[in-house]
Nucleic acid binder design. Structure first.
Length: 311
DNA sequence: ATCCTATCCTGTAGGC
DNA sequence: TGCCTACAGGATAGGA
């Protein structure tokens, strides 16, 4: 569920609320997530104060004093929930409850249990078996088009799959991969090794633009994602292709198509994202979104709607 | 080495 | 209404 913008939204909320608080005690559900929460977790973190909330790709890093870091991943359905005063009624699928010395609580809820929660010595984070596999973070360290181009040389996987691989660029998931490729005008099935340099320049540009715009809107709520304040993300209105199968492309009106790649849905516009570079050159003439001086009526409406509906 | 498939789990939407 | 199936924002072990 949560991709980089959703995780960043959660990180900011955690940074603003739980840093400075000291953990008094921890209760665990005992159910395994992606892997079991380690037995000693509660004892490790109890008594320590949260000093910072960081993020790497889709991983959240909650630093504690004393050189310890809580490493968490939200998987498909994970949420961190903060309660200044914890509710008396129980909630389902809560796997960890951190109680602070002031009575506030932080809960980790995860119905599908694909998430992750463990404590790692801060100085050993780079060697953590999960984090060690995480590639560059596109917000902290935006990859240049040439860098992506070089990384893609010789690889035969589709460019959509390339963007989903967390070992290269970390944080892009299934929604934003489709969105980035549409805005970059690159067909998702193109082999990454065959995407031309100008394609990678466009992809690099749109990775930054899409992720930053999504962060500005607190992410996308497709079905279950909520911010830590239980509010939906507002980027949903901005989606150009994701989950819009059959609906008109917001750029050219052509019906959006849904295909399956690696058992995941991909959405794209067959006209804006031609299957071959040759076809791309052929069709580039009539509609040049990025070079027209005047935004289209539709673009202006979208912009106005976005600014007026912002929280 | 690289790439692909299946798998973990629950909730929900849509078809009948 | 209820039952059934398909699918969902992720990561990864293991096989090809």
């Amino acid at each position: 569920m949560p991709e980089l913008p959703e995780v960043e939204t959660v990180r900011r909320a955690l940074q603003a609320t739980v840093t400075g608080r000291t953990i008094r005690s921890v209760r665990l559900s005992g159910l395994a997530l992606r892997e079991p929460i380690p037995r000693g977790f509660a004892k490790q973190v109890a008594g320590h104060r949260l000093t910072a909330a960081r993020r790497l790709g889709k991983y959240l890093l909650l630093d504690l004093d004393g050189g310890l870091t809580m490493l968490s991943h939200l998987g498909m359905s994970g949420r961190w929930l903060f309660f200044p005063e914890p509710p008396s009624s129980d909630m389902p699928h809560v796997h960890a409850r951190l109680r602070f010395t002031d009575g506030a609580e932080l809960w980790f809820q995860d119905p599908r249990r694909f998430g992750l929660l463990r404590a790692v010595a801060t100085e050993r984070l780079e060697r953590d078996r999960s984090l060690a596999l995480v590639g560059v973070d596109p917000i902290q360290n935006p990859p240049a088009g040439a860098w992506l181009h070089a990384r893609a040389r010789g690889t035969r996987i589709a460019v959509k799959q390339f963007l989903l691989d967390q070992k290269r660029v970390a944080g892009i998931g299934n929604i934003y991969a489709s969105e980035i490729l549409h805005r970059a005008a690159v067909h998702p099935r193109l082999r990454a090794g065959r995407v031309p340099g100008e394609g990678w320049e466009a992809i690099a540009r749109e990775i930054r633009a899409v992720l930053n715009e999504a962060i500005d809107r607190n992410g996308t709520t497709f079905s279950m994602y909520r911010t830590m304040w239980n509010e939906p993300g507002a980027y949903g209105d901005q989606l150009r292709v994701y989950d819009r199968s059959g609906e008109p492309c917001r750029t050219c009106g052509t019906p959006i198509r849904r295909i399956v790649q690696g058992a995941r849905a991909t959405f794209f516009c067959p006209r804006c994202q031609p299957a071959s570079p040759r076809a791309a050159r052929r069709s580039r003439g009539p509609r040049r979104r990025h070079s027209t001086a005047k935004p289209s009526v539709r673009q202006r409406q979208t912009r106005r709607k976005a600014t007026s509906s912002g929280s």
